[in-house]
Every structure is written in C-alpha cells, then in structure tokens.
C-alpha cells in the first residue's frame, strides 16, 4: 500500500486544485463542473446510471467471453497446423491496424440495433490481443523443456497439456488484461451506433443536454468499470497461476 501512497496523494491534490480553480475563477458548470458538483450529479442520477450500466456490462462480458473462445481456438489451431499459422498470421497482424470500431455502422446495417452487432464489435476488438499473446506464449516455451519431454517419450498431446498450455497462461492473461479494458470501451462506442440503453447512450444524451456534470460522472463510471475489469482479470490470474507471481519470492 505504501508504494501507492504518493500516487494517491497526487490524485487527491489534483482534485483539490480542480475544485479551487473552478470555484475561484467562477467557471461555468456546463464547461467544467467542479469535482464536488460531479459527485452530486452522480449521486442524484445513480439509479439512472445503474439502469444504463447493466446492458453495457452484459455486452462487454458476452463480447469478451466470445473473444476468449475464438482466440483460444485460433491460437491452438495456429500452434497445431503450421500451414494455417502461415496463412493466418499476416491477417492477424494487419487486422491489428484496423480500428474495428469503424465497422460498427456496417454491422448495424446488417444486424440492426440489438445485441448481436455490439457483441461482434467487442469480440473483434478483444480477440487480437488475446490470440496473439496466447500464440506467442505457445511459441515462447523453453525449447530445452520440450527436449526434456521428447527424451521422456511424451506424445504431442502430453507436451501440449503438460507444457505448452501452462507455460502460455501468463501471456494469455496479459492479453486478457488488455482485452478486458477494450471490452468496456467497445461496448460504450458500439452503443453510439444505436441503442436505447447503455452507458454510451447515457453519455451521448447527457452531452446533448449540456449536462456536463453528468457526462463527467458517466466518464468516471466507465473508467472505473475498465479498471475493475482489469483488476478482476488480475485476481483470476493470481488464483490460477500463482507460480507466475511466486517468482523470486523468498522461501519461508
């Protein structure tokens, strides 16, 4: 906790300076509301925010879950079949340069305003970091360990189960950590294309009504949601791959 103290202090001071500045210069609330005002706005519209938060969260969770399954499937396939890897790898790299968000209007055209186009967008955004990290994890397995297993007469299946899978989990989780933040972002932005509920919609509506304090409150909630998603992944990782965090820890 101690090592975060200075960061925490900096955040508190920044909020304080912000508050003083807004009050001191009499800045109008629709341009820049003070932190206290934002908090009041949040508190007053908490039911509304919660109402809009639910669908965003559901979209993000389904989209991310979809991405995880697709990624595991593709990464294993790439690891297993060299030809498939050769063909697909360039597409993977190129796909990274496409901001998938720009496909949202097209998907709305095809699938309407419901859940499906949003899930697809989120999955597309999330799948790249997971796939590439998982695949790199497979590739990065210590070749000496592979030789050890070969010398023991292990089958390809055993090598996969005993070494490649566990060895690639840390990098799988780094990919998932990035993707989990993307999933919230993807959900919010995909809602902009059309939806009647969701934090993205609430954000747009608040902006159009010049409710700047509420805009800030919603931005704050979206940020917190992303942080929460990343933390959740981190906690799961610490439970599932304790050995990864055990490195260099002193024995008792």
């Amino acid at each position: 906790m101690k090592k975060y103290f200075l960061s925490f202090l900096t955040a508190v001071i920044s909020l304080f300076v912000w508050q003083i500045t807004v009050m001191g210069f009499n800045i109008e609330a629709w341009i820049l509301p003070s932190p206290s005002r934002i908090f009041v706005a949040f508190w007053q519209s908490r039911a509304l925010i919660f109402y809009h938060l639910i669908p965003t969260l559901i979209e993000a969770v389904i989209g991310l879950t979809g991405a995880v399954f697709i990624s595991i499937f593709i990464a294993i396939f790439m690891e297993r079949y060299y030809a498939f890897q050769k063909i697909i790898y360039p597409f993977l790299i190129i796909s990274q340069t496409i901001p998938f968000i720009i496909l949202a209007p097209l998907l709305t055209l095809w699938f309407g305003f419901g859940l499906p186009p949003k899930i697809i967008i989120i999955s597309l955004v999330c799948f790249f970091p997971i796939t590439i990290n998982l695949f790199d994890g497979f590739q990065g397995v210590d070749s000496s360990i592979l030789r050890l297993l070969t010398s023991m007469g292990a089958s390809q299946k055993q090598i996969f189960k005993l070494v490649k899978l566990p060895a690639s989990l840390p990098s799988f989780f780094s990919g998932l950590r990035i993707a989990s933040a993307y999933s919230i972002l993807g959900a919010v932005v995909s809602e902009w294309m059309g939806a009647d509920r969701g934090l993205g919609i609430l954000l747009i509506r608040s902006t159009k009504s010049y409710l700047t304090d509420r805009v800030f409150a919603v931005i704050g909630i979206i940020t917190l949601l992303s942080i929460f998603a990343v933390l959740l992944v981190e906690i799961i990782a610490r439970i599932l791959i304790p050995w990864h965090y055990y490195k260099l820890k002193i024995r008792k």
Partner: peptide, 24 residues
Amino acid sequence: YMFQEPLLFPWLKVLENVMLGFEI
C-alpha cells in the same frame, strides 16, 4: 535422462515435478 540444467516446470510444485515421469 537428467539434463545439465534442472529444467523444472515452474508451474508444478516440487512434488508434482518429481511425479512428471509417472504422468507421462
């Protein structure tokens, strides 16, 4: 065959590492 480097699996506890041969 014992390699020159220990090559223990970091994701397995010591006991499980020793049991690797049985597993295979």
